[in-house]
């Protein structure tokens, strides 16, 4: 009896959960389809709602883009732990000889991959629709998008775990997420907007620092709190 080897390493546990989530999404395509459709609809509505000239578009581009990411992402984030709850699989994950924060990091990395994939599709569409080159400062803008997405998913995955046991989870998830993620969103919009307008890096450094601090704080908090959050 008991044919398992020494305990699974943290990274192997995280990787097993990431690949499982990616395999499920490749089969169902629910999260990516929902995220993309919602984000594209948001961009279309913004485009019609505002009278954009080449002078104003650079001022609102970053806001429109990040709001599209945020709204669509919050929809998909809700699903993250719901998949684990529906057939009781979260219990099976908790029973496994695995550091429970590995469950969080596995889910968070999978969500981050979904968000980044959505960004790769949405940004070219945005560029054509709004006639503005978001990726002119390619490296810095990529870093800002990654850091913003990381902060959003760090908080979103944690809140998805919190809200999955609530009765009004579909409503509570976004309601809890939006205020908490606001500092990261503001910083990301400031950086992306500044880069689109061609502002020098020195003017954006403070926002980069805020975004980095947000990411580190919430990842650390999740690492500490996750085990207590998923226990009923």
């Amino acid at each position: 009896m008991g044919n398992s080897k020494a305990g699974l390493s943290f990274t192997h546990g995280v990787w097993a959960i990431v690949t499982k989530d990616l395999a499920m999404e490749l089969r169902g395509k629910e999260i990516l389809t929902t995220t993309l459709m919602f984000a594209l609809l948001t961009l279309v509505i913004f485009n019609f709602a505002m009278d954009l000239t080449s002078l104003t578009v650079k001022d609102i581009a970053a806001g429109a883009l990040w709001v599209a990411f945020l709204f669509s992402g919050s929809l998909s984030m809700n699903r993250s732990f719901l998949y684990e709850k529906e057939e009781g699989c979260l219990s099976a994950l908790m029973l496994a000889p695995l550091d429970r924060s590995a469950i969080y990091f596995g889910k968070m990395i999978a969500n981050l991959i979904f968000t980044l994939t959505a960004m790769v599709v949405i940004i070219p569409v945005f560029t054509v629709m709004y006639n503005v080159n978001v990726m002119e400062s390619f490296i810095l803008q990529s870093l800002a998008l990654f850091m913003g997405a990381l902060g959003f998913n760090a908080v979103g995955t944690l809140i998805s775990a919190v809200s999955v046991n609530l009765r009004a989870r579909e409503m509570m998830g976004p309601l809890l997420l939006l205020p908490v993620v606001a500092p990261a969103l503001i910083a990301a919009v400031k950086i992306s907007g500044g880069l689109i307008r061609g502002e020098p890096l020195e003017e954006l450094t403070a926002w980069f620092q805020i975004l980095a601090a947000f990411d580190v704080i919430y990842l650390a908090l999740a690492w500490i709190l996750f085990e207590h959050i998923i226990e009923e």
Partner: peptide, 19 residues
Amino acid sequence: EARKRIGYISHQSLVYPEL
């Protein structure tokens, strides 16, 4: 080590329908 010794069957299936 304790978790490795336990097998748990619930009235829920604890398996992923998509897989």
